[in-house]
Amino acid sequence: MPSSEAPLDDLARTPGVPKPDPILIVDNVQRTFGGLQAVNVQSLQIQRGTITSLIGPNGAGKTTLFNLLTGFDRPQHGDWHLNGGALVGIPSFRVARRGMVRTFQLTKSLARLTVLENMLVAAKDQVGESFWGGLFGRWRHIEAANEAKAMASLERFGLDHMASHYAGSLSGGQRKLLEMARALMVEPEVIMLDEPMAGVNPALTQTLLGHISALRDDGKTVVFIEHDMDVVQEISDWVVVLSQGTVIAEGPPAHIASNHDVIDAYLGLHHGEKP
């Protein structure tokens, strides 16, 4: 159910359209691999406090764009800002600290850490994380506070009963939940989910969707990559369509579903193809 305030309804449905309150602004970001244009985004703005989904056929450059924006890859050129601060050339871990956290298509649970440790490792501002702080710092009371927060979050995601187990012993679906919960421990403003629903059963998909809308209700901005148009329709406030590295369309989900360019580029040519 798209947001009821619908501040985006009045916007033009053209690629690169400016948003009233953008949290993330992307300008002319280009990445080529050995002469092959992987990403070439002229202009893209993400509205604060909404769920934006990024769709497009395989190889459209969605994950590459994620990698670029979060500092996991370097573009040939381009510029992008989070909350007005330039992010170009900022290493990935600093991007995360600035409030933009990503997840990965193939879940990366820290297998030989417990579920609780997975959560705690993501917590911010722990003085015991520095070498000297760990040896001599007063980190235990911070740890206790983080633990309370982590347990509350695990409960929300239905993982509290697994807290003391190794993350490697979780099922695939539980790992997806853990990865999302863990990302939230960083207290991001923007959370970027790379195909959170890939390879997940329908029941869990509904659970995940519930969690994603809850994030928006908490005031977070969500950008997520998804293949399934039904899922996109159900939850997004705004949809951005990527094809061959460029934004070919954007607009509210209902508009996108009937857009001929999108149907040609995405649904028409690649219908039924799974990643």
Binding site: T70, F72, P91, S92, F93, R94, A96, R97, V101, R102, T103, F104, K108, S109, L110, A111, R112, L113, E117, N118, L120, V121, A122, K124, E129, R182, A183, M185, V186
Partner: peptide, 17 residues
């Protein structure tokens, strides 16, 4: 704990700041 996280998955540790 952080160095063990790095042992398990560097990219995950990076993504967590």
């Amino acid at each position: 704990r952080t160095i063990r996280a790095i042992r398990e998955d560097e990219d995950a540790a990076l993504s967590l700041g």
